[in-house]
Amino acid sequence: MNEKNLLQARGIVKRYPGAERPAVDHLDLDIGAGEFLSIAGPSGSGKTTLLHILSSLIQADAGQILFQGQDICAAPEAVRNRLRGLVFAVVFQQHHLLPYLSALENVLLPFLGGIKPARAADIATAQAMLSRVGLAGKENSRPGQMSGGEQQRVAIARALVRGAQVLFADEPTGSLDSVNGAAIIQLLRELNSEGLTVVMVTHNDEFAAQSDRIVRMADGAIQTLS
């Protein structure tokens, strides 16, 4: 397999009901394994929509998303659920932690899709992941007791706890101050250096510049690659 074709978008079109033009318009994109890709562009350019299509959070109206050569758009919902649970990880601008669970329990959440309780190994993995994002000792803290940056780290730990191959980050620093924002980018950079493929949507050129490649979008299409 070519390094460039871990994830490929081919002729992707997405039009929201009532919209004048497509949010994503016949877009092609290749993402390589272990790449750190930033998708930049003005508001309404379609970058978030593209990220959601790539991560299988939403379905494209037309086109293909090939993951390791397999079209995931045509896959049944159960397969897409499994992809989101095991292979893809998504973090958002808002951390979206469950306020009534501790940091450790939030990170364990992906293990709780069934009636079987989380195993001791799962708990150990979650604790290790919290340590990896620099939150050792914060396992029992509730989201309300943590800073915005810490909460975003918990969200990243939760996204990656099941060993995802690709992390999709939608404006992960958008709700953070510059110091915490820079720390999150640094964390993503470290995770990427450990082999994680990162696809990040950002408005911030300074943060985008830290990625391997920048895709700039406008009007639902890619304008430039750098």
Partner: peptide
């Protein structure tokens, strides 16, 4: 809705959310 969105985003099936 946000909580349900998170469950679905991390791989919970519709039946798990229903449950």
């Amino acid at each position: 809705r946000r909580e349900i969105g998170i469950m679905r985003a991390i791989g919970f099936s519709r039946s798990s959310v229903f449950a």
